[in-house]
Design a protein around this nucleic acid. Structure first.
Length: 121
DNA sequence: GCCATGGCTAGTA
DNA sequence: GCCATGGCTAGTA
């Protein structure tokens, strides 16, 4: 799609499709997390983080697609279709811990995608 | 129009 | 805490 960035320059952003998100998310291993914004960036549309959340909320297959491993950019939990308590429980089962509402050692458990992921088209 | 976000600014302590 | 963001859905015509 076409839109203007912060410098009022016209840019092309990739339209994010549900399956793009689910496919990428399947690659996040237990014990690691990513963020809504990181997924948006990796899929070629850095400002689409809100959309990622909406797409995850309709995740048809929570077994194959580990929605619970997606948290907010500040390390806080974010939402979950089955409640945030459930989300936190799953993450703790995978070895993560929390210091007052945020993932402990966030920097260490946060997956980073290769930045040129979006150069393919 | 809705939102499972995020980055920034004001303004408090 | 404000508000731009962007894909989707309900529900109107």
């Amino acid at each position: 799609m076409l839109s203007y960035n912060m410098d009022k320059r016209l840019v092309i952003r990739k339209t994010i499709k549900n399956e793009d998100v689910y496919e990428l998310l399947r690659k996040i291993p237990a014990g690691k997390v990513t963020t809504y914004g990181d997924l948006a960036k990796a899929l070629g549309n850095p400002s689409a983080s809100r959309i990622i959340g909406r797409i995850l909320s309709r995740n048809p297959n929570p077994i194959k697609v580990p929605c619970h491993r997606v948290v907010m950019s500040d390390g806080k939990l974010g939402g979950y279709a089955y409640g945030t308590a459930k989300k936190r429980g799953l993450l703790e089962k995978e070895g993560l811990s929390f210091t007052n509402e945020s993932v402990s050692d966030f920097m260490k458990v946060r997956i980073s995608f290769s930045s040129d992921e979006n150069t393919r088209d």
